[in-house]
Simulated scan of single mutants.
Amino acid sequence: MDPERTYTAFLGPRRIASGSAREVLQRLGEVGACDGPVLVFDDLSGHQVELDPRLVAEEPPVRAGPGRPKLGVVSREVSLLPRHWEWLEQQPSGISAALRRLVEEALRRDPDEERTRLAREAAHRVMTALAGDLPNYEEAARALFARDSRRFAQQIRRWPADIRDHLARLVERAFPSGDDP
């Protein structure tokens, strides 16, 4: 797990921990047994995650497998059509280098728009998991994807404080500058 990534844990509508994976796990250990499921979210992606309790130990687990871990390179499988493979094989620096160049080019095209899109999607994932059955959920979702921060804030204002505050923090990246909820 990325040591700079942050996570937030909820027990129902109550936020019980936020911080690095290690910090969240330590807090969950202090809280002990809970009356219900604890949901842990990756703050960047909004995905629900299960944190590895071994992260609380002094040394993080060593990742084994292909790739060049010291450089941060991870090996994964990619499925492409034959014509795509043919094109990649013709590239001068090899397939991996060509793919890296394509990804870097796509990231440079409009990095701000990409960041706001990813932030909206992350906020929506968390909002669906925590507030999908709360009043005004659908309107809040519409406001989120319409980039209407005022309407979004209005729709979630009566939600439980921890959910509302966490979503407000997540959507800071989802709305254009100067249009804060």
Rank of each mutant, 00 (worst) to 15 (best):
R158W: 08
F41Y: 12
T8E: 07
R101Y: 12
L99D: 06
W159Y: 06
Y137L: 09
L25I: 15
W87T: 10
P60Y: 06
G72K: 08
D43K: 07
Y7W: 13
W159P: 00
P3G: 01
L88G: 09
A122H: 01
W87G: 00
R158F: 09
D35K: 10
E59N: 10
Y7A: 06
L130H: 03
G132H: 01
E138T: 11
L130T: 02
G65V: 15
P135C: 04
R83Y: 02
V126S: 00
G32Y: 08
P53R: 07
V78A: 06
A174W: 02
R158A: 10
Q154D: 15
A131T: 04
E4P: 09
D112E: 15
H166I: 11
T8Y: 01
L130Y: 00
R120S: 10
I16H: 06
L71P: 03
D133K: 09
L44D: 07
L134N: 01
G67T: 12
R109Y: 11
N136C: 02
D2N: 15
E50H: 03
V73A: 04
R142A: 02
A21T: 11
M127F: 00
G178V: 14
E104A: 06
D133Y: 02
D180E: 14
R76F: 05
E138H: 06
H124I: 08
A9K: 04
W87Y: 12
G46W: 00
G36H: 10
R158T: 12
G29K: 14
G29D: 14
T6L: 08
L167P: 00
A140M: 00
P3Q: 05
S177W: 03
C34L: 14
Y7Q: 09
G46L: 06
P111T: 12
D35I: 09
D112W: 08
A33F: 11
R142C: 00
G132A: 05
A140C: 05
E58F: 12
A168G: 07
A21N: 09
R157W: 06
G178Y: 09
E58P: 07
V62T: 15
T116C: 05
Q91T: 13
V40W: 11
G94M: 11
L80R: 01
W159S: 00
D179V: 13
E139V: 09
E4Y: 03
L39A: 06
V24C: 09
D43M: 11
D35S: 11
H84S: 04
E121S: 02
H124Y: 04
D112L: 15
R115S: 14
A146W: 01
K70D: 08
G29L: 15
F10A: 12
A168L: 13
